[in-house]
Computed example of a mutant assay.
Amino acid sequence: MSIAKFAARSFLATATIAAVGIAVPQAQAAPTPAVKLSDRADADTRAFAAAHPGAVRAALVVCGANYVLENAERLPSSDNRLATLFTYRIPGNIPNDEPTCAILDNNTASTKWMKLKLCSNWIADGCAEDVGNFTSYAGPVYRARGGCGKVYAIMKNSAGSGSALVDAIRNATNCD
Results as ranks from 00 to 15, higher is better:
M1K: 14
S2I: 00
A7T: 01
A7W: 05
S10G: 12
A19T: 02
P25S: 08
Q26D: 14
A27W: 05
Q28N: 14
A34N: 15
V35M: 12
A41G: 15
D42W: 08
A43F: 13
D44R: 15
A47C: 07
F48G: 06
A51S: 14
H52D: 10
P53H: 15
R57M: 11
R57Q: 15
A59P: 06
L60T: 03
V62I: 01
N66M: 07
A72S: 11
L75T: 03
P76F: 12
L82M: 12
T84N: 10
T87Q: 09
G92L: 05
G92K: 06
N93Y: 06
P95C: 07
P95L: 08
T100N: 09
T100L: 08
C101S: 08
A102M: 08
D105L: 15
D105K: 12
A109E: 08
W113A: 05
L118M: 06
W122V: 00
I123R: 15
A124V: 03
G126N: 12
G126V: 01
C127I: 01
C127M: 08
C127S: 11
A128R: 04
G132T: 01
F134E: 02
T135P: 02
G139F: 03
V141A: 07
Y142A: 05
A144L: 11
A144M: 11
A144G: 12
C148E: 05
K150I: 00
I154N: 06
I154H: 09
K156A: 05
K156H: 07
K156R: 15
K156N: 05
S161Q: 07
S161E: 09
G162A: 14
D167M: 06
I169W: 10
A172G: 10
